[in-house]
Design a binder for these strands. Structure first.
Lengths: 202, 202
DNA sequence: CCGAGCGATGTCACGTGGCGACATCACGAG
DNA sequence: CTCGTGATGTCGCCACGTGACATCGCTCGG
């Protein structure tokens, strides 16, 4: 048939290439069409020409099909933090700006669709929190590896994460056209202003 | 019989009082004995002398049995934020300190047990993240109601939340005996130091 | 004193998530 | 050609979570 130089399939579709990618794509489509909860794992597998069981061999979870980019994000973040020799908070902010430019910048519309899926399901929101938590833990570890003490590393990481989340929310919102990196820089200075006031107890 | 002025039960146990509390207690015990995933909802209900279906009428979820205190925490937090007239970040920190004194102070051992359960299960960790997220959203709303703009409210809230999480982690750790309120104050000043540095780009 | 109404519970059945065990297929090496 | 290997399909299972319906025991009006 008109199959390229890729896998083989006779009766149905056995050993087509990139099963993972096809499942991710199928999941993404179905989540948008019917919503996350209305989509069955069997549905996803069927659209990808595979079986439910195969899905679970490639993803730990139904939710995981939506969160496959996180390894790359983590790598990018850790790389910058490890290579930058600035104060911890500044290093984390720089890492987020760099990562935003590398990975998010030219996928704005895709990211918006993905985010709208996530916001439609509490289960997916939970999973996103867990994923970003893991990301931040990796950043904290990278900071610790540079000699900073635990508390400093955590506080810098969490603050940087807060900055990113706020900037990201703005960037994703439909009425924004600034670049994510710029938004991050803006929010970072706003944060500094807020947390550095005098002991103003009345 | 020797039943007090409380409910009735004939064949088994129909209409005993405080079904919710009994289910929470049963869940807590079983999670400690067998672990969260090894415990079945039917097990919990059985230990409480109830049926699986009743559990689901009182809790949305198997996980929810562990997270029932959050309404009280939210109330306490919002109350202080609404009544305090300090800068936003300081107000949030004050709210956490007050809440810690009111609710956590005299339950340290209980909190430690609960936390060890949560840390043993990714599912429970996800749920905890979601719960604290909801808490923080309420605090943000309270700040907004006082006239602060959205970004300021979010940044102050998230920063306060970060401070609390770090202080809480220290307080729960077995080798600490300082009060939670004091730890929060300490961490808050550490955070101010970290996020307020000069634009130190090399 | 009794029957109607009611609220909390139990019972049953079902779809789905997720997983272990085993069968099956296509390939590549010998 | 045969055999092994890795990716897949098939089957069966248990637990989660929910809708529909039955039941219990109280409370209140008659």
């Amino acid at each position: 048939m008109s199959q390229r130089d890729i896998g083989y399939h006779r009766h149905m579709a056995r050993w087509q290439p990139d099963a993972r990618g096809r499942l991710e794509a199928a999941a993404f489509e179905l989540f948008r069409e019917r919503g996350f909860e209305q989509t069955t794992v069997a549905d996803i597998a069927a659209r990808a020409g595979l079986d439910k069981r195969t899905f679970y061999r490639l993803f730990g979870d139904k939710r995981e099909a939506l969160f496959s980019g996180s390894e790359r994000v983590e790598e990018a973040l850790v790389k910058v933090v490890a290579e930058t020799d600035a104060a911890p908070f500044e290093a984390v902010v720089a890492a987020f700006r760099q990562m935003a430019a590398e990975i998010f910048a030219d996928r704005r519309e895709l990211v918006r669709m993905r985010q709208s899926i996530i916001e439609s399901s509490p289960e997916l929101q939970e999973r996103e929190l867990r994923k970003t938590g893991a990301l931040l833990a990796a950043v904290t570890a990278a900071l610790r590896a540079k000699g900073f003490d635990e508390t400093t590393a955590i506080l810098a990481t969490e603050s940087g994460g807060t900055v990113f989340r706020v900037a990201y929310a703005r960037w994703v919102s439909p009425d924004s056209d600034a670049s994510l990196a710029d938004l991050i820089a803006e929010v970072a200075t706003e944060l500094s202003a807020i947390t550095s006031s005098s002991p103003g107890r009345r």
